[in-house]
Amino acid sequence: MILNMDGTKPIYLQISEWLEREILNGNFESDQKIYSQYQLAEMFTINPATAAKGLTLLVEENILYKKRGLGMFVSNHAKQIILNKRKNQTLKKLVLEIVMEAERLNVSREELIQMIQAVNVEEAGE
């Protein structure tokens, strides 16, 4: 199971995030047909309505577009939209949490930035 069925994050969000990763990984190109709700339901043993909700979310964000009777397709700027969204929403939230945790632990801004830079160095060294 690729999804994280920990019972807390709504499955339709996990589906849309999984599809976003598939697009970012290059498994789906622009104008390529993406999985149908029934394929997703089958793949993850989830209700087709839940899978549809995950797809609809991506249509609302212009990452996918609908062709009547044909299914859903990856839009032209899908990758860019996903990257922007992740940066402005996911990354910002994570940064906020890091900053708050640092404050709770009395870690100064400078120290925090150093820690972040240290992580970069380590990863680049790999």
Partner: peptide, 9 residues
């Protein structure tokens, strides 16, 4: 419920 919720609507 934890076992069946994934397949429910």
């Amino acid at each position: 419920l934890d076992e069946i919720e994934d397949i429910l609507e």
